[in-house]
Write a protein that binds this DNA or RNA. Structure first.
Ligand code: ZN
Ligand code: ZN
Ligand code: ZN
Ligand code: ZN
Lengths: 148, 148
DNA sequence: TCATAGTTGTTACATTATAACATTTCATCC
DNA sequence: GGATGAAATGTTATAATGTAACAACTATGA
């Protein structure tokens, strides 16, 4: 079974459990994101949604993206204005990402949501973290030394 | 001496050392950013630049921002599309920020550029970090408990 | 069936950012 | 001082990203 297919089936099951509706539109957006090898922007998704039919208007895709974000099925990469599938959506979480600026691929790191040093600094400042944005931009193993 | 004024003087000195030109336009943009209590978007800066005269076109401010970013005099908060002054521009660095989503204020954390756990995960994946984006969104000490 | 909430369609617009090329200003050399 | 090239700025147009507002449709249960 393909990686993308596994994600979709898992999403289907999660939404059923939670009593929310993974409608065909939302499923299509999730599928396009999961099939892509790199993060897709909202407008790239729009371009891939209309197979023959006319291209939907932006709110269509933004609404589907909002739903998928709320359900923790995708993450937004802020520094790219683009979206990636979450590989472990069972327990919604904020992501930490390695973003390759050469090939565009993104790798989600798992582990404690924030490393202690950072979290401590925040606490000491009396700060209450709600949504950490952690995106390490650089080059991935495949792209080292390549002149791409 | 005001905080903003101190930043400007320091920027002036740094640019002289480095042989780059902190022109009046660039200085104005830096001043507006330093005087603000919260990050300013490029267009907010534009709005504040024209004192009586006509408002400059976007490239004007984006070019100044590019220069100030290159010189490490300001940082961009990716998740806000906005810019803040750097309080320690002597040694250019990437920032780590506590971003209050209530009052809008931003607090730059200093310390090791990345905590060990995170950095190790990246290295293990063969990833070479060039620009970390670390922005903790939440509520600051002042805003806790307030219904703002 | 009917009422209701949730979802989608549609139009228009707001915000953020850049490409391309003309013009001006600045520093340097003669 | 005047020529010259590099840097900075002006200007127009447009690309890319994101949202407000309201109408229409659809699923669902009383
Ligand atoms: Zn995830
Ligand atoms: Zn790569
Ligand atoms: Zn800084
Ligand atoms: Zn606050």
């Amino acid at each position: 079974m393909s990686e993308a297919r596994r994600h979709l089936d898992q999403a289907e099951a999660l939404c059923r459990e939670r009593g929310v509706r993974l409608t065909p539109q939302r499923r299509t957006v999730l599928r396009l994101i999961c099939e892509a090898e790199r993060p897709l922007s909202a407008y790239e998704i729009l371009d891939r949604m209309h197979q023959g039919a006319r291209r939907p208007a932006p709110p269509t895709v933004y609404r589907a993206l909002d739903f998928l974000l709320q359900q923790g099925l995708i993450h937004k990469i802020e520094s790219l204005h683009a979206f990636v599938g979450c590989k472990h959506p069972q327990h919604p979480h904020t992501g930490q990402f390695l973003v390759c600026t050469d090939c565009g691929r993104v790798n989600e790191i798992h582990g404690r949501p924030l490393e202690d040093g950072l979290q401590q600094a925040a606490r000491q400042a009396g700060f209450h973290t709600r949504k950490p944005v952690v995106e390490l931009l650089g080059t991935c193993a495949h792209c080292h030394g390549r002149d791409c």
